[in-house]
Design a protein around this nucleic acid. Structure first.
Lengths: 251, 251
DNA sequence: ATAAAAATGTGTTTTTTTTACACTAAGTAC
DNA sequence: GTACTTAGTGTAAAAAAAACACATTTTTAT
């Protein structure tokens, strides 16, 4: 039962009293958008209730907030150096108000001195996850069929998704979920998963071909039992230099 | 010289060590979009430098983040119950990196233990502002002719403007800057100010008339020395009920 | 060798949306 | 009653988005 750990005496592991981080870890696998949730065992009236929540933790003293988020991601998935982004800050008093009747029994624990939560989202290609490193208590859940989570974690997820979609229209985040070399069909599938829709292949290609930083390579797929697709890459340098031209890729 | 205040001993006024709020307060007046900036007196090598920045402050212990933003707005303008929205979170270490050469002399003060800034924007009809309550150090600046601000505050402003424009296309924020009853021309002027452009009157009207929650009243302007315009109102209830139909009023 | 299967890659037509454009109406001031 | 000022309205042209189908290239099975 992590999350109930006592504050360690080693100063290194002391937490900032007031700040915690919750992570919405988006995963992509099999053309589906997923989110990582984890089991929580909650003692209540002599029983142990099983609840689900977003992974989160306290910020440790002398730890950068981003480092907390990275630490959580690594604990949950084993992954490092993954794109993560702060998307919102929540005051806990507010959040408790929203659902306090449901969770009166946890209130005392939450209210002690924790007053702030920073929400992060991250983008993970589930193929990169070594499943043996995935925590026993963690589970990938289909992003559009999420069970009810503790507290206001469903709201937090929805905010994260909104922000992810916004950012995707303004920054080249899509490439965080694609391998170094990718086909346009792979790219399309990722967009479709995140926006929960489908696109016409020809119209999609017409649109993304306007991105000057999307580079066609000479390489073709191999080992596939059909016509091999061409590989493309993302050229970050071109992106940085054409930034001012302001592509808003409304999908 | 506020902002240099020592932490008061009264617990109520203690600040959270690590969190501050910066506010981009958009104002609308005379068909122009403005932003509130404030003077800052910075001691440097025995002199006092005058710099300009966005209003901001620390989050106090036991204060919700939104309350901090509201407090800043009230301090600066005297206004309460104004729409405010969180639009961004940033880590200070990151921000310092961006401009540390410019501000090496402030670094020690900033670096102590402040690690997080939350950006809010708000929308204020300047006619509602009692100018006597506006702080001496505050100034409405034309949004498209902003002077250079301290640190990365120009970047923050640009992010706020981008988010404001985006939100305006997805939510009925426009009505925050309009009186209870308004004419379509008034409405058009607000859009024009925020998007820094002009629209054709007929095309504009065709577009906004698609909003089912924009209600024509029987009332006409009076006391104007020309053909009186019709008043319209915003029906929030209709908006809530037709929300699912997803109007994206791209202007 | 040939046929079947599977996904790639490409252009045109239709529909929808956006833009451009100009005059009459209603009131006030003189 | 004439001049001034802003309100209010429709249509045509251009641009953008959406809908749509088939030939190509590779592997696999026979």
């Amino acid at each position: 039962m992590p999350e109930f750990e006592n504050v360690l005496e080693n100063r290194e592991f002391q937490t900032l009293p007031s700040v915690s981080v919750d992570c919405v870890i988006f995963g992509y696998e099999g053309n589906l958008l997923k989110v990582l949730v984890r089991r929580e065992y909650v003692p209540f009236e002599g029983n142990i209730l099983i609840e689900w929540k977003l992974p989160g933790n306290h910020v440790r003293r002398n730890e950068q907030i981003d480092a907390t988020a990275s630490r959580i991601l690594k604990e949950q998935t084993g992954l490092e150096n993954i794109f993560m982004k702060q998307f919102m800050v929540f005051s806990d008093p507010d959040r408790l108000k929203r659902r306090e009747r449901d969770y009166e029994w946890v209130k005392p624990r939450l209210q002690d001195d924790r007053v702030l939560t920073v929400g992060f989202y991250s983008l993970v290609n589930i193929h990169d996850v070594d499943n043996s490193k995935l925590l026993e208590e963690a589970k990938w859940e289909n992003a559009y069929e999420i069970r009810e989570l503790m507290f206001d974690h469903n709201d937090i997820f929805n905010e994260a998704l909104k922000k992810l979609r916004y950012d995707l229209l303004h920054e080249p985040l899509i490439f965080e979920l694609l391998p170094e070399k990718f086909t346009l069909t792979q790219m399309q599938k990722v967009y479709e998963a995140i926006f929960d829709t489908t696109y016409d292949k020809r119209n999609f290609r017409r649109k993304v071909n306007k991105m000057p930083y999307l580079i066609q390579t000479d390489e073709l797929q191999s080992g596939v039992s059909h016509k091999p697709a061409r590989y493309y890459t993302f050229d970050r340098e071109i992106y940085e230099n054409t930034r001012s031209e302001r592509f808003d890729f409304r999908m």
